[in-house]
């Protein structure tokens, strides 16, 4: 009885908007959709599996020379061989140290410059035209110069990796600093903060999350220069291994090197994301 009356007086609204995203069979192409974490993981695995599957089929089909285009299973075996028998871990470590040293150096140079250029128009006016020019020079063009100046040792490789990212880094960090809202700086001034305090207590903390994002993006670019840097007169490192493998047409080992660079890149990316999450708890509430 009661239920019937309730139905009569308050007609149920048609099942609509709120329920839609929860039901199975969610449409694929919906704008601004929020996915469940596990859905994202599954879809990510599906994407990778599709790629590996297509590669496996292509690599094992007739007419494709297996030595020049090995399937993922061969690359996996090569990886195992490299680590177990050829001390590949030492190569990976050498490359990792090179990337970290050069990128650390680039960050140490670029952070103060980018911050000062973004904060003070005068500093930007002096440095920006010069740095903008350097940005257009290909890093590889510096290899002969660095070989003459620094020799064929570690310094030359670090220098090349540094030049590859530092000019972009400065410009991007400057843009991050410029994006600090004027009202925040003006508020600090009316609260009695002086120039130095505004730089350290407003401009820096307001820019830091963006700085971290920029560093993350540019570290990826640093990894892309790695093989170039390790081609010239190098005996260790992922790139050097790949050049050795090329001499003996060990394509599976070259591909293994590429895979390892990708894996290390993704790991660095993850480390930066984690750092961002831990260092800036207030960003979790951003709408």
């Amino acid at each position: 009885m009661t239920t019937r009356t309730a139905h009569a007086t308050a007609p149920t609204p048609p099942t609509a908007a709120p329920a839609r995203s929860a039901v199975p069979g969610t449409p694929w192409f919906e704008f601004k959709q929020t996915l469940q974490p596990w859905t994202r993981v599954v879809l990510g695995i599906v994407g990778a599996a599709l790629f590996l599957g297509a590669w496996q089929i292509a690599g094992t089909s007739d007419g494709v020379p297996r030595a020049l285009f090995p399937p993922p299973t061969d690359v996996g075996r090569a990886l195992w061989r490299l680590f177990a028998e050829q001390h590949f871990a030492a190569d990976v470590w050498a490359s990792f140290v090179r990337i970290m040293l050069s990128f650390g150096l680039a960050a140490v140079i670029a952070l103060p410059l980018g911050m000062l250029m973004g904060a003070f128009a005068g500093v930007a006016a002096v440095l920006n035209p010069l740095l903008a020019g350097f940005r257009y020079l290909p890093a590889t063009a510096f290899i002969p110069l660095f070989l003459m100046w620094l020799g064929a040792g570690e310094e030359q490789k670090i220098a090349l990796l540094l030049v590859g990212v530092v000019f972009f880094l400065i410009t991007l960090l400057m843009d991050n600093t410029l994006a600090v809202r004027t009202e925040l700086i003006e508020t600090a001034r009316t609260l009695g903060a002086n120039r130095r305090q505004i730089l350290w207590s407003i401009v820096l903390p307001a820019s830091l999350p963006a700085y971290l994002d920029t560093l993350r993006q540019m570290l990826a670019v640093g990894w892309t220069y790695l093989v170039v840097a390790e081609i010239v007169a190098t005996t260790d490192g992922i790139g050097a291994m790949m050049m050795r493998a090329k001499r003996f047409v060990h394509v599976d080992e070259i591909m293994a090197g590429i895979v390892i660079i990708g894996v290390l890149g993704v790991a660095c990316d993850g480390a930066f994301r984690l750092a961002r999450h831990v260092a800036f708890p207030y960003l979790r509430y951003q709408r």
Partner: peptide, 14 residues
């Protein structure tokens, strides 16, 4: 001496 409140939100988010 002269504190100011703006129309836009100026709380320091960090």
């Amino acid at each position: 001496d002269r504190g100011m409140v703006f129309q836009s939100y100026t709380s320091f988010p960090w």
